[in-house]
Design a protein around this nucleic acid. Structure first.
Length: 557
RNA sequence: UGGGGUAUAGCCAAGCGGUAAGGCACUGGGUUUUGAUCCCAUGAUCCCAGGUUCGAAUCCUGGUACCCCAGCCA
Protein backbone atom coordinates (compact mmCIF):
# COMPACT_ATOMS: atom_id res chain seq x y z
CA UNK A 1 0.00 0.00 0.00
CA UNK A 2 1.08 3.52 -0.67
CA UNK A 3 -0.69 5.06 2.26
CA UNK A 4 0.98 4.75 5.61
CA UNK A 5 -0.86 2.18 7.61
CA UNK A 6 -2.51 3.12 10.83
CA UNK A 7 -2.25 0.60 13.61
CA UNK A 8 -5.62 -0.89 14.44
CA UNK A 9 -7.07 -0.29 17.85
CA UNK A 10 -9.13 -3.36 18.57
CA UNK A 11 -10.16 -4.62 21.98
CA UNK A 12 -7.16 -6.94 22.29
CA UNK A 13 -4.68 -4.19 21.54
CA UNK A 14 -6.49 -2.01 24.05
CA UNK A 15 -6.09 -4.67 26.73
CA UNK A 16 -2.43 -5.11 25.88
CA UNK A 17 -1.75 -1.39 25.81
CA UNK A 18 -3.38 -1.06 29.21
CA UNK A 19 -1.38 -3.99 30.60
CA UNK A 20 1.82 -2.51 29.28
CA UNK A 21 0.99 0.73 31.02
CA UNK A 22 0.38 -0.85 34.41
CA UNK A 23 2.91 -3.68 34.49
CA UNK A 24 6.50 -4.10 33.43
CA UNK A 25 7.08 -6.93 30.98
CA UNK A 26 7.96 -7.69 27.41
CA UNK A 27 5.00 -8.75 25.32
CA UNK A 28 5.20 -12.35 24.11
CA UNK A 29 2.65 -13.97 21.80
CA UNK A 30 2.57 -17.14 19.79
CA UNK A 31 0.98 -18.65 16.72
CA UNK A 32 0.24 -22.27 17.66
CA UNK A 33 -1.01 -24.35 14.72
CA UNK A 34 -1.39 -28.09 14.86
CA UNK A 35 0.60 -29.45 11.91
CA UNK A 36 -2.31 -31.41 10.52
CA UNK A 37 -3.23 -29.41 7.43
CA UNK A 38 -2.57 -26.41 5.28
CA UNK A 39 -3.00 -22.87 6.48
CA UNK A 40 -5.87 -20.82 5.11
CA UNK A 41 -6.96 -17.19 5.09
CA UNK A 42 -8.62 -17.70 8.48
CA UNK A 43 -5.24 -18.59 9.97
CA UNK A 44 -3.85 -15.44 8.41
CA UNK A 45 -6.09 -13.41 10.68
CA UNK A 46 -4.55 -15.02 13.74
CA UNK A 47 -1.04 -14.85 12.31
CA UNK A 48 -1.30 -11.14 11.55
CA UNK A 49 -2.71 -10.45 15.00
CA UNK A 50 -0.05 -12.33 16.92
CA UNK A 51 2.95 -11.23 14.90
CA UNK A 52 1.85 -7.64 14.37
CA UNK A 53 0.86 -6.97 17.94
CA UNK A 54 4.23 -8.28 19.11
CA UNK A 55 6.10 -6.14 16.59
CA UNK A 56 4.10 -3.04 17.46
CA UNK A 57 5.13 -3.40 21.08
CA UNK A 58 8.74 -4.54 20.65
CA UNK A 59 7.67 -7.94 21.79
CA UNK A 60 8.34 -11.48 20.64
CA UNK A 61 6.21 -13.94 18.76
CA UNK A 62 6.90 -17.65 18.63
CA UNK A 63 5.81 -20.20 16.12
CA UNK A 64 4.76 -23.22 18.12
CA UNK A 65 3.60 -26.45 16.57
CA UNK A 66 0.93 -27.87 18.80
CA UNK A 67 1.88 -31.45 18.08
CA UNK A 68 0.28 -33.52 20.80
CA UNK A 69 -1.66 -35.91 18.59
CA UNK A 70 0.66 -37.95 16.38
CA UNK A 71 -2.25 -39.73 14.72
CA UNK A 72 -3.14 -36.60 12.79
CA UNK A 73 0.11 -34.81 12.26
CA UNK A 74 2.79 -34.86 9.63
CA UNK A 75 6.12 -33.22 8.83
CA UNK A 76 4.77 -32.26 5.43
CA UNK A 77 2.47 -29.82 7.18
CA UNK A 78 5.12 -28.27 9.36
CA UNK A 79 7.12 -27.43 6.27
CA UNK A 80 4.16 -25.92 4.48
CA UNK A 81 3.19 -23.88 7.52
CA UNK A 82 6.68 -22.45 7.82
CA UNK A 83 6.73 -21.63 4.12
CA UNK A 84 3.35 -19.91 4.29
CA UNK A 85 4.40 -17.82 7.27
CA UNK A 86 7.57 -16.73 5.50
CA UNK A 87 5.64 -15.94 2.37
CA UNK A 88 3.30 -13.73 4.38
CA UNK A 89 6.40 -11.93 5.54
CA UNK A 90 6.62 -13.02 9.15
CA UNK A 91 9.60 -14.27 11.08
CA UNK A 92 9.18 -16.00 14.40
CA UNK A 93 11.45 -15.17 17.29
CA UNK A 94 11.83 -18.87 17.99
CA UNK A 95 10.46 -22.13 16.68
CA UNK A 96 8.96 -24.36 19.34
CA UNK A 97 6.94 -27.54 19.58
CA UNK A 98 4.60 -28.63 22.30
CA UNK A 99 6.48 -31.91 22.06
CA UNK A 100 9.61 -30.08 23.24
CA UNK A 101 7.88 -29.98 26.62
CA UNK A 102 6.70 -33.57 26.89
CA UNK A 103 9.11 -34.21 29.75
CA UNK A 104 8.06 -31.13 31.71
CA UNK A 105 4.43 -31.80 30.96
CA UNK A 106 4.82 -35.29 32.33
CA UNK A 107 6.36 -33.88 35.48
CA UNK A 108 3.47 -31.46 35.85
CA UNK A 109 1.05 -34.36 35.53
CA UNK A 110 2.91 -36.24 38.24
CA UNK A 111 2.75 -33.13 40.41
CA UNK A 112 -0.99 -33.07 39.91
CA UNK A 113 -1.26 -36.69 40.98
CA UNK A 114 0.87 -36.04 44.02
CA UNK A 115 -1.46 -33.30 45.20
CA UNK A 116 -4.44 -35.56 44.58
CA UNK A 117 -5.59 -33.39 41.67
CA UNK A 118 -5.42 -36.13 39.06
CA UNK A 119 -6.22 -39.81 38.88
CA UNK A 120 -5.95 -42.73 36.52
CA UNK A 121 -9.34 -43.76 35.22
CA UNK A 122 -10.21 -47.18 33.84
CA UNK A 123 -13.60 -46.34 32.40
CA UNK A 124 -14.09 -47.03 28.69
CA UNK A 125 -14.66 -44.18 26.30
CA UNK A 126 -18.35 -44.92 26.21
CA UNK A 127 -18.55 -45.01 30.00
CA UNK A 128 -16.67 -41.78 30.35
CA UNK A 129 -19.18 -40.10 28.08
CA UNK A 130 -22.07 -41.46 30.12
CA UNK A 131 -20.54 -40.45 33.43
CA UNK A 132 -19.91 -36.95 32.06
CA UNK A 133 -23.64 -36.14 32.08
CA UNK A 134 -24.94 -33.73 29.52
CA UNK A 135 -25.66 -30.05 28.96
CA UNK A 136 -28.49 -30.01 31.49
CA UNK A 137 -27.56 -32.75 33.91
CA UNK A 138 -24.48 -33.01 36.07
CA UNK A 139 -22.07 -35.88 35.67
CA UNK A 140 -21.23 -38.43 38.30
CA UNK A 141 -17.95 -39.47 39.77
CA UNK A 142 -15.87 -42.18 38.18
CA UNK A 143 -15.52 -45.28 40.37
CA UNK A 144 -11.76 -44.81 39.96
CA UNK A 145 -11.82 -41.28 41.29
CA UNK A 146 -10.76 -42.25 44.81
CA UNK A 147 -7.68 -44.29 44.02
CA UNK A 148 -4.80 -43.53 46.33
CA UNK A 149 -2.01 -41.24 45.23
CA UNK A 150 0.42 -44.16 45.33
CA UNK A 151 -1.79 -46.25 43.12
CA UNK A 152 -2.21 -43.39 40.64
CA UNK A 153 1.51 -42.77 40.57
CA UNK A 154 2.18 -46.42 39.92
CA UNK A 155 -0.43 -46.69 37.21
CA UNK A 156 0.65 -43.52 35.44
CA UNK A 157 4.27 -44.65 35.50
CA UNK A 158 3.24 -47.92 33.96
CA UNK A 159 1.09 -46.15 31.37
CA UNK A 160 4.18 -44.26 30.32
CA UNK A 161 6.20 -47.47 30.33
CA UNK A 162 3.86 -48.97 27.79
CA UNK A 163 2.23 -51.60 29.96
CA UNK A 164 -1.26 -50.78 28.76
CA UNK A 165 -2.99 -50.77 25.43
CA UNK A 166 -4.48 -47.72 23.72
CA UNK A 167 -7.69 -46.70 25.43
CA UNK A 168 -7.22 -48.89 28.45
CA UNK A 169 -6.50 -46.08 30.90
CA UNK A 170 -6.45 -42.32 30.93
CA UNK A 171 -5.22 -39.70 33.35
CA UNK A 172 -7.88 -37.25 34.43
CA UNK A 173 -7.80 -34.01 36.35
CA UNK A 174 -9.86 -34.23 39.51
CA UNK A 175 -12.07 -31.16 39.40
CA UNK A 176 -15.84 -31.35 39.63
CA UNK A 177 -18.16 -33.78 37.87
CA UNK A 178 -21.10 -31.50 38.61
CA UNK A 179 -19.55 -28.35 37.16
CA UNK A 180 -21.87 -26.37 34.92
CA UNK A 181 -18.98 -26.04 32.51
CA UNK A 182 -18.53 -29.48 31.02
CA UNK A 183 -14.84 -28.88 30.45
CA UNK A 184 -14.36 -28.98 34.19
CA UNK A 185 -15.95 -32.41 34.68
CA UNK A 186 -12.70 -34.27 35.30
CA UNK A 187 -11.20 -33.67 31.85
CA UNK A 188 -8.85 -36.26 30.39
CA UNK A 189 -5.32 -34.93 30.33
CA UNK A 190 -3.31 -37.93 29.11
CA UNK A 191 -4.25 -40.77 26.80
CA UNK A 192 -2.33 -43.79 25.58
CA UNK A 193 -1.33 -43.89 21.93
CA UNK A 194 1.24 -46.38 20.78
CA UNK A 195 2.28 -44.27 17.85
CA UNK A 196 5.50 -42.86 16.44
CA UNK A 197 5.61 -39.11 16.87
CA UNK A 198 7.12 -37.01 14.07
CA UNK A 199 9.40 -35.26 16.54
CA UNK A 200 9.89 -37.57 19.50
CA UNK A 201 9.79 -40.88 17.66
CA UNK A 202 8.90 -43.80 19.88
CA UNK A 203 9.94 -42.22 23.13
CA UNK A 204 6.38 -41.72 24.30
CA UNK A 205 3.22 -43.76 24.25
CA UNK A 206 1.24 -41.37 26.43
CA UNK A 207 0.37 -38.00 24.96
CA UNK A 208 -1.06 -34.96 26.74
CA UNK A 209 -4.35 -33.42 25.63
CA UNK A 210 -4.78 -29.90 24.32
CA UNK A 211 -6.24 -28.35 27.46
CA UNK A 212 -3.39 -29.56 29.60
CA UNK A 213 -0.68 -28.83 27.05
CA UNK A 214 -1.62 -25.45 25.76
CA UNK A 215 -1.73 -23.47 28.97
CA UNK A 216 1.45 -25.06 30.26
CA UNK A 217 3.31 -24.56 26.99
CA UNK A 218 2.25 -20.92 27.10
CA UNK A 219 3.50 -20.65 30.66
CA UNK A 220 6.78 -22.40 29.90
CA UNK A 221 7.47 -20.03 27.03
CA UNK A 222 6.49 -16.99 29.03
CA UNK A 223 3.68 -16.08 26.71
CA UNK A 224 1.98 -13.02 28.15
CA UNK A 225 -1.13 -12.95 26.01
CA UNK A 226 -2.50 -16.16 24.60
CA UNK A 227 -4.82 -15.21 21.77
CA UNK A 228 -7.24 -17.77 20.42
CA UNK A 229 -10.65 -18.11 18.85
CA UNK A 230 -14.05 -17.93 20.48
CA UNK A 231 -14.73 -21.63 20.79
CA UNK A 232 -12.07 -21.77 23.49
CA UNK A 233 -13.88 -19.36 25.77
CA UNK A 234 -15.36 -22.30 27.65
CA UNK A 235 -11.89 -23.71 28.09
CA UNK A 236 -10.49 -20.66 29.81
CA UNK A 237 -11.57 -21.73 33.30
CA UNK A 238 -9.69 -24.96 32.74
CA UNK A 239 -6.71 -23.11 31.29
CA UNK A 240 -6.62 -21.03 34.45
CA UNK A 241 -7.24 -24.00 36.73
CA UNK A 242 -4.13 -25.86 35.56
CA UNK A 243 -1.93 -22.81 35.90
CA UNK A 244 -3.22 -21.94 39.35
CA UNK A 245 -3.21 -25.50 40.62
CA UNK A 246 0.30 -26.12 39.38
CA UNK A 247 1.58 -22.75 40.57
CA UNK A 248 3.40 -22.01 37.35
CA UNK A 249 5.91 -19.16 37.45
CA UNK A 250 3.76 -17.12 35.11
CA UNK A 251 0.14 -17.09 34.19
CA UNK A 252 -0.57 -16.03 30.60
CA UNK A 253 -3.86 -14.33 29.86
CA UNK A 254 -6.06 -16.09 27.34
CA UNK A 255 -8.15 -13.74 25.20
CA UNK A 256 -10.57 -14.94 22.57
CA UNK A 257 -11.66 -13.34 19.31
CA UNK A 258 -14.02 -14.34 16.51
CA UNK A 259 -12.60 -16.48 13.76
CA UNK A 260 -12.85 -15.36 10.16
CA UNK A 261 -15.65 -16.50 7.99
CA UNK A 262 -15.87 -15.51 4.35
CA UNK A 263 -18.90 -15.43 2.08
CA UNK A 264 -19.11 -17.97 -0.70
CA UNK A 265 -16.30 -20.02 0.81
CA UNK A 266 -15.69 -22.73 3.35
CA UNK A 267 -12.92 -22.58 5.87
CA UNK A 268 -13.08 -25.70 7.96
CA UNK A 269 -10.26 -28.15 7.57
CA UNK A 270 -12.69 -31.01 7.21
CA UNK A 271 -14.52 -29.37 4.31
CA UNK A 272 -11.38 -28.27 2.54
CA UNK A 273 -10.03 -31.76 2.84
CA UNK A 274 -13.23 -33.15 1.40
CA UNK A 275 -12.92 -30.86 -1.62
CA UNK A 276 -9.43 -32.16 -2.23
CA UNK A 277 -10.20 -35.82 -1.64
CA UNK A 278 -13.31 -35.81 -3.80
CA UNK A 279 -11.38 -34.08 -6.57
CA UNK A 280 -13.76 -31.16 -6.55
CA UNK A 281 -10.63 -29.02 -6.73
CA UNK A 282 -7.15 -29.86 -7.97
CA UNK A 283 -5.35 -30.13 -4.67
CA UNK A 284 -4.65 -27.89 -1.70
CA UNK A 285 -3.00 -25.35 -3.95
CA UNK A 286 -5.89 -25.07 -6.34
CA UNK A 287 -6.23 -21.33 -7.02
CA UNK A 288 -9.87 -21.47 -5.98
CA UNK A 289 -9.01 -22.69 -2.49
CA UNK A 290 -8.87 -20.25 0.43
CA UNK A 291 -5.62 -21.88 1.52
CA UNK A 292 -2.61 -19.61 1.58
CA UNK A 293 -0.84 -21.92 -0.83
CA UNK A 294 -3.83 -21.74 -3.17
CA UNK A 295 -4.16 -17.99 -2.90
CA UNK A 296 -0.46 -17.61 -3.52
CA UNK A 297 -0.77 -19.67 -6.68
CA UNK A 298 -3.80 -17.67 -7.73
CA UNK A 299 -1.65 -14.56 -7.50
CA UNK A 300 -2.69 -12.93 -4.24
CA UNK A 301 0.10 -10.90 -2.70
CA UNK A 302 1.08 -11.22 0.95
CA UNK A 303 0.50 -7.48 1.27
CA UNK A 304 -3.07 -7.83 0.12
CA UNK A 305 -3.77 -10.55 2.65
CA UNK A 306 -2.29 -8.54 5.47
CA UNK A 307 -4.25 -5.50 4.36
CA UNK A 308 -7.38 -7.62 4.33
CA UNK A 309 -6.74 -8.82 7.86
CA UNK A 310 -6.40 -5.21 9.00
CA UNK A 311 -9.58 -4.19 7.25
CA UNK A 312 -11.87 -6.84 8.65
CA UNK A 313 -11.35 -5.78 12.23
CA UNK A 314 -11.05 -7.84 15.36
CA UNK A 315 -13.97 -8.38 17.70
CA UNK A 316 -15.96 -11.13 19.36
CA UNK A 317 -18.81 -10.70 16.89
CA UNK A 318 -19.75 -13.70 14.88
CA UNK A 319 -19.57 -12.27 11.39
CA UNK A 320 -19.14 -13.16 7.78
CA UNK A 321 -17.00 -11.00 5.53
CA UNK A 322 -18.01 -10.32 1.96
CA UNK A 323 -15.70 -11.47 -0.84
CA UNK A 324 -15.71 -7.89 -2.09
CA UNK A 325 -13.50 -6.87 0.80
CA UNK A 326 -10.83 -9.37 -0.21
CA UNK A 327 -11.13 -8.35 -3.84
CA UNK A 328 -10.75 -4.74 -2.88
CA UNK A 329 -7.57 -5.55 -0.97
CA UNK A 330 -5.92 -7.31 -3.87
CA UNK A 331 -7.00 -4.73 -6.43
CA UNK A 332 -5.77 -1.78 -4.44
CA UNK A 333 -2.45 -3.48 -3.81
CA UNK A 334 -1.93 -4.48 -7.42
CA UNK A 335 -3.21 -1.33 -9.13
CA UNK A 336 -0.27 0.98 -8.46
CA UNK A 337 2.45 -1.60 -8.93
CA UNK A 338 1.37 -3.86 -11.75
CA UNK A 339 2.37 -3.44 -15.38
CA UNK A 340 -0.37 -3.15 -17.95
CA UNK A 341 -0.17 -5.39 -21.00
CA UNK A 342 -2.61 -6.47 -23.68
CA UNK A 343 -4.10 -9.93 -23.92
CA UNK A 344 -7.10 -11.06 -25.90
CA UNK A 345 -8.91 -13.76 -24.01
CA UNK A 346 -11.44 -14.77 -26.65
CA UNK A 347 -10.00 -13.69 -30.00
CA UNK A 348 -11.91 -12.32 -32.96
CA UNK A 349 -9.88 -11.79 -36.13
CA UNK A 350 -9.88 -8.32 -37.61
CA UNK A 351 -8.43 -7.45 -41.03
CA UNK A 352 -7.65 -3.79 -41.53
CA UNK A 353 -8.17 -3.50 -45.24
CA UNK A 354 -6.41 -0.23 -45.90
CA UNK A 355 -3.40 -0.93 -43.69
CA UNK A 356 -0.13 -1.72 -45.53
CA UNK A 357 1.44 -5.18 -45.47
CA UNK A 358 4.35 -3.91 -43.42
CA UNK A 359 3.93 -4.02 -39.62
CA UNK A 360 4.98 -1.17 -37.36
CA UNK A 361 6.12 -0.71 -33.79
CA UNK A 362 4.18 1.40 -31.36
CA UNK A 363 5.23 2.41 -27.89
CA UNK A 364 2.90 1.52 -25.03
CA UNK A 365 3.42 2.65 -21.42
CA UNK A 366 3.28 0.06 -18.69
CA UNK A 367 1.18 2.21 -16.41
CA UNK A 368 -1.17 5.08 -17.24
CA UNK A 369 -0.54 6.95 -14.01
CA UNK A 370 3.09 6.09 -13.41
CA UNK A 371 5.53 6.98 -16.19
CA UNK A 372 8.42 5.69 -14.10
CA UNK A 373 7.29 2.18 -14.92
CA UNK A 374 8.42 2.74 -18.49
CA UNK A 375 7.04 1.35 -21.70
CA UNK A 376 7.51 -1.40 -24.25
CA UNK A 377 7.07 -1.62 -28.01
CA UNK A 378 4.03 -3.44 -29.35
CA UNK A 379 3.69 -4.48 -32.95
CA UNK A 380 0.71 -3.37 -34.95
CA UNK A 381 -0.18 -4.98 -38.26
CA UNK A 382 -2.82 -5.54 -40.87
CA UNK A 383 -4.37 -8.52 -39.08
CA UNK A 384 -5.12 -8.28 -35.41
CA UNK A 385 -7.28 -9.90 -32.76
CA UNK A 386 -9.77 -8.11 -30.62
CA UNK A 387 -12.00 -9.46 -27.87
CA UNK A 388 -15.16 -11.18 -29.06
CA UNK A 389 -17.07 -9.28 -26.41
CA UNK A 390 -15.91 -6.02 -27.93
CA UNK A 391 -18.01 -6.46 -31.05
CA UNK A 392 -21.75 -6.64 -31.28
CA UNK A 393 -23.60 -6.79 -34.56
CA UNK A 394 -26.68 -5.30 -32.98
CA UNK A 395 -25.41 -3.17 -30.10
CA UNK A 396 -27.71 -2.16 -27.26
CA UNK A 397 -27.83 1.36 -25.84
CA UNK A 398 -24.71 2.49 -24.01
CA UNK A 399 -22.53 -0.07 -25.82
CA UNK A 400 -19.44 1.93 -26.71
CA UNK A 401 -17.44 -0.73 -28.46
CA UNK A 402 -17.23 -1.91 -32.05
CA UNK A 403 -20.29 -2.49 -34.22
CA UNK A 404 -20.98 -2.28 -37.95
CA UNK A 405 -20.18 1.21 -39.17
CA UNK A 406 -18.83 2.27 -35.75
CA UNK A 407 -15.47 3.72 -34.96
CA UNK A 408 -13.42 2.82 -31.88
CA UNK A 409 -9.91 3.41 -30.70
CA UNK A 410 -7.42 0.58 -30.58
CA UNK A 411 -5.44 1.28 -27.50
CA UNK A 412 -2.14 3.08 -28.22
CA UNK A 413 -2.77 2.54 -31.96
CA UNK A 414 -5.41 3.89 -34.33
CA UNK A 415 -9.09 4.53 -34.72
CA UNK A 416 -10.72 1.81 -36.78
CA UNK A 417 -14.16 1.58 -38.31
CA UNK A 418 -15.98 -1.66 -38.89
CA UNK A 419 -16.92 -2.02 -42.54
CA UNK A 420 -18.25 -5.55 -42.74
CA UNK A 421 -18.76 -8.79 -40.92
CA UNK A 422 -17.64 -12.19 -42.19
CA UNK A 423 -19.60 -15.23 -41.04
CA UNK A 424 -19.24 -18.96 -41.54
CA UNK A 425 -21.92 -21.36 -42.80
CA UNK A 426 -23.50 -21.52 -39.35
CA UNK A 427 -23.83 -17.79 -39.19
CA UNK A 428 -21.14 -17.36 -36.61
CA UNK A 429 -18.99 -14.27 -36.87
CA UNK A 430 -15.47 -15.30 -37.75
CA UNK A 431 -13.89 -12.11 -38.92
CA UNK A 432 -14.32 -8.36 -39.14
CA UNK A 433 -13.20 -6.17 -42.03
CA UNK A 434 -12.24 -2.73 -40.87
CA UNK A 435 -10.49 0.39 -42.09
CA UNK A 436 -8.19 2.60 -40.09
CA UNK A 437 -7.48 6.29 -40.08
CA UNK A 438 -3.72 6.85 -40.46
CA UNK A 439 -4.06 10.29 -38.94
CA UNK A 440 -5.08 8.84 -35.59
CA UNK A 441 -1.77 7.14 -34.87
CA UNK A 442 -1.17 6.91 -31.15
CA UNK A 443 -4.88 7.08 -30.50
CA UNK A 444 -5.85 10.71 -30.87
CA UNK A 445 -7.56 12.42 -33.78
CA UNK A 446 -6.05 15.67 -35.05
CA UNK A 447 -9.50 16.89 -36.00
CA UNK A 448 -10.56 16.50 -32.42
CA UNK A 449 -13.27 13.91 -33.02
CA UNK A 450 -13.96 11.62 -30.15
CA UNK A 451 -14.70 7.94 -29.90
CA UNK A 452 -16.40 6.55 -26.85
CA UNK A 453 -14.75 3.18 -26.88
CA UNK A 454 -11.13 2.11 -26.51
CA UNK A 455 -10.43 -1.56 -26.91
CA UNK A 456 -7.34 -3.72 -26.59
CA UNK A 457 -5.86 -5.85 -29.33
CA UNK A 458 -2.87 -7.97 -30.33
CA UNK A 459 -1.25 -8.52 -33.71
CA UNK A 460 -2.05 -11.94 -35.12
CA UNK A 461 1.42 -12.57 -36.46
CA UNK A 462 3.17 -11.40 -33.31
CA UNK A 463 0.94 -12.62 -30.51
CA UNK A 464 1.69 -15.62 -28.35
CA UNK A 465 -0.94 -18.26 -27.75
CA UNK A 466 -1.47 -18.83 -24.06
CA UNK A 467 -3.78 -20.68 -21.73
CA UNK A 468 -5.77 -18.49 -19.43
CA UNK A 469 -7.67 -19.81 -16.43
CA UNK A 470 -10.56 -17.75 -15.24
CA UNK A 471 -11.70 -18.32 -11.69
CA UNK A 472 -14.93 -17.49 -10.04
CA UNK A 473 -16.10 -18.12 -6.49
CA UNK A 474 -16.06 -21.82 -5.60
CA UNK A 475 -19.59 -21.75 -4.20
CA UNK A 476 -22.74 -20.08 -5.39
CA UNK A 477 -24.30 -19.75 -1.97
CA UNK A 478 -23.10 -17.17 0.56
CA UNK A 479 -23.01 -19.75 3.31
CA UNK A 480 -22.38 -23.21 1.84
CA UNK A 481 -23.75 -25.93 4.05
CA UNK A 482 -26.06 -23.59 5.93
CA UNK A 483 -29.01 -25.08 7.81
CA UNK A 484 -27.97 -28.67 7.51
CA UNK A 485 -27.49 -28.84 3.74
CA UNK A 486 -24.44 -30.54 2.24
CA UNK A 487 -21.96 -27.79 1.48
CA UNK A 488 -20.96 -29.60 -1.69
CA UNK A 489 -24.38 -29.01 -3.23
CA UNK A 490 -23.48 -25.32 -3.22
CA UNK A 491 -20.45 -25.75 -5.46
CA UNK A 492 -20.37 -23.34 -8.38
CA UNK A 493 -20.09 -25.49 -11.53
CA UNK A 494 -18.48 -22.56 -13.33
CA UNK A 495 -15.78 -21.82 -10.80
CA UNK A 496 -13.13 -22.39 -13.45
CA UNK A 497 -13.08 -21.62 -17.17
CA UNK A 498 -10.06 -22.60 -19.17
CA UNK A 499 -9.32 -20.65 -22.33
CA UNK A 500 -6.65 -22.46 -24.30
CA UNK A 501 -6.47 -20.20 -27.32
CA UNK A 502 -5.95 -16.78 -25.82
CA UNK A 503 -3.56 -14.38 -27.52
CA UNK A 504 -1.14 -12.33 -25.48
CA UNK A 505 1.27 -9.64 -26.61
CA UNK A 506 4.82 -10.63 -27.51
CA UNK A 507 6.44 -8.95 -24.52
CA UNK A 508 4.98 -11.67 -22.32
CA UNK A 509 7.37 -14.21 -23.82
CA UNK A 510 9.77 -13.41 -21.00
CA UNK A 511 7.19 -13.47 -18.22
CA UNK A 512 8.46 -15.28 -15.16
CA UNK A 513 6.73 -17.76 -12.92
CA UNK A 514 4.37 -16.01 -10.51
CA UNK A 515 4.80 -12.65 -12.24
CA UNK A 516 1.67 -10.52 -12.17
CA UNK A 517 0.20 -8.31 -14.87
CA UNK A 518 -2.86 -6.32 -15.50
CA UNK A 519 -4.38 -7.41 -18.80
CA UNK A 520 -5.93 -4.13 -19.81
CA UNK A 521 -9.68 -3.99 -19.38
CA UNK A 522 -9.75 -7.58 -18.11
CA UNK A 523 -8.20 -7.94 -14.72
CA UNK A 524 -5.08 -8.96 -12.89
CA UNK A 525 -3.35 -12.16 -13.93
CA UNK A 526 -0.47 -14.23 -12.64
CA UNK A 527 1.81 -16.70 -14.38
CA UNK A 528 0.89 -20.08 -12.92
CA UNK A 529 3.72 -21.37 -10.77
CA UNK A 530 3.00 -25.01 -11.53
CA UNK A 531 1.85 -25.46 -15.11
CA UNK A 532 3.31 -22.51 -16.98
CA UNK A 533 6.45 -22.96 -19.08
CA UNK A 534 8.33 -21.14 -21.81
CA UNK A 535 6.67 -23.40 -24.36
CA UNK A 536 3.20 -22.95 -22.97
CA UNK A 537 2.32 -19.90 -20.96
CA UNK A 538 -0.45 -20.39 -18.41
CA UNK A 539 -2.05 -17.46 -16.60
CA UNK A 540 -4.41 -17.43 -13.65
CA UNK A 541 -6.89 -14.66 -13.29
CA UNK A 542 -6.42 -13.26 -9.81
CA UNK A 543 -9.38 -10.91 -9.91
CA UNK A 544 -11.29 -8.98 -12.54
CA UNK A 545 -11.19 -5.23 -12.79
CA UNK A 546 -14.24 -3.47 -11.43
CA UNK A 547 -16.62 -3.55 -14.32
CA UNK A 548 -19.43 -1.04 -14.54
CA UNK A 549 -20.35 -2.24 -18.01
CA UNK A 550 -21.08 -5.67 -16.55
CA UNK A 551 -23.49 -3.97 -14.17
CA UNK A 552 -25.24 -2.11 -16.99
CA UNK A 553 -25.51 -5.35 -18.93
CA UNK A 554 -27.00 -7.07 -15.91
CA UNK A 555 -29.53 -4.30 -15.41
CA UNK A 556 -30.51 -4.48 -19.07
CA UNK A 557 -31.55 -8.08 -18.68
C1' U B 1 -32.86 -19.92 34.94
C1' G B 2 -27.38 -25.95 32.18
C1' G B 3 -22.80 -23.01 31.13
C1' G B 4 -20.21 -19.49 28.06
C1' G B 5 -20.62 -15.51 24.39
C1' U B 6 -22.57 -11.66 20.86
C1' A B 7 -26.23 -7.80 19.13
C1' U B 8 -24.41 -0.17 15.95
C1' A B 9 -26.31 0.87 7.90
C1' G B 10 -26.46 -4.45 2.71
C1' C B 11 -21.26 -6.46 4.84
C1' C B 12 -17.44 -5.22 8.42
C1' A B 13 -16.47 -1.60 12.38
C1' A B 14 -15.29 2.90 15.72
C1' G B 15 -17.67 4.60 19.96
C1' C B 16 -16.13 3.61 26.89
C1' G B 17 -22.69 9.12 29.65
C1' G B 18 -22.33 15.06 26.09
C1' U B 19 -25.71 14.50 21.24
C1' A B 20 -23.53 8.11 15.71
C1' A B 21 -15.69 7.79 12.82
C1' G B 22 -13.92 4.90 8.88
C1' G B 23 -13.67 0.85 5.16
C1' C B 24 -16.23 -2.36 1.62
C1' A B 25 -20.67 -2.59 -1.36
C1' C B 26 -24.53 0.36 -3.65
C1' U B 27 -26.30 4.95 -6.17
C1' G B 28 -25.40 9.74 -8.57
C1' G B 29 -21.70 13.17 -10.68
C1' G B 30 -16.52 14.85 -12.49
C1' U B 31 -11.53 13.54 -14.77
C1' U B 32 -9.71 9.64 -18.03
C1' U B 33 -6.64 6.65 -24.78
C1' U B 34 -8.50 0.64 -19.44
C1' G B 35 -16.72 1.25 -19.01
C1' A B 36 -9.97 0.70 -14.73
C1' U B 37 -7.64 4.13 -11.46
C1' C B 38 -8.53 8.88 -9.21
C1' C B 39 -11.92 12.78 -7.22
C1' C B 40 -16.62 14.54 -5.18
C1' A B 41 -21.64 13.55 -3.18
C1' U B 42 -25.53 10.44 -0.85
C1' G B 43 -27.32 6.46 3.97
C1' A B 44 -28.30 4.42 10.56
C1' U B 45 -30.67 7.10 16.67
C1' C B 46 -27.59 2.14 17.79
C1' C B 47 -32.13 -5.86 18.84
C1' C B 48 -36.89 -4.71 21.87
C1' A B 49 -39.38 -2.62 26.32
C1' G B 50 -39.02 -0.03 30.66
C1' G B 51 -35.92 2.89 34.09
C1' U B 52 -31.79 6.35 36.01
C1' U B 53 -29.97 11.25 34.17
C1' C B 54 -30.24 18.08 32.28
C1' G B 55 -28.39 14.47 28.69
C1' A B 56 -27.99 7.20 27.19
C1' A B 57 -25.51 3.37 21.59
C1' U B 58 -22.89 3.93 26.20
C1' C B 59 -25.45 2.93 33.17
C1' C B 60 -29.67 -0.29 35.50
C1' U B 61 -33.90 -3.90 35.00
C1' G B 62 -36.62 -7.24 32.09
C1' G B 63 -37.13 -9.50 27.41
C1' U B 64 -35.79 -11.31 22.27
C1' A B 65 -32.50 -13.32 18.52
C1' C B 66 -28.16 -15.67 17.06
C1' C B 67 -23.32 -18.38 18.03
C1' C B 68 -20.25 -22.01 20.99
C1' C B 69 -19.90 -26.43 24.52
C1' A B 70 -21.55 -33.22 26.09
C1' G B 71 -13.60 -36.10 21.22
C1' C B 72 -9.22 -40.69 24.82
C1' C B 73 -9.33 -33.71 18.37
C1' A B 74 -7.07 -28.99 18.47
Amino acid sequence: MQISKSIPNDFIRQIITEDLKTKIFQLVTRFPPEPNGYLHIGHAKSICLNFDVAAENSGRCYLRFDDTNPSKEDLEYVESIKADLNWLGYTWTELRHSSDYFEQLYDYAVALIKTDKAYVCGLTGEEIRQYRGNLKEPGKNSPYRERTIEENLDLFTRMKAGEFADGELVLRAKIDMAAANINLRDPIIYRIKHLTHQMTGDKWCVYPMYDFTHCLSDAIEGITHSLCTLEFEDHRPLYDWFLETLQTPCHPQQIEFARLSLNYAVMSKRKLQELVEDNLVNGWDDPRMPTLIGMRRRGYTPESIRDFCDKIGLTKNNTSIEMGVLENSIRSDLDPKTARVMAVLKPLRVVIENYPAEAEQLEAPYHPNDPSMGSRPVTFSKVIYIEQDDFLEDPPKKFFRLAPGREVRLRYAYFITCQSVVKDETGEIIELRCTYDPATKGGSAPDGRKVKGTIHWVSEAHAITAEIRLYDRLFNKPNPGASGTDFKTAINPNSITILSNSKVEASLATAESSQRFQFERQGYFCVDNVDSSAEKLVFNRIVTLRDSWAKIEKDNR
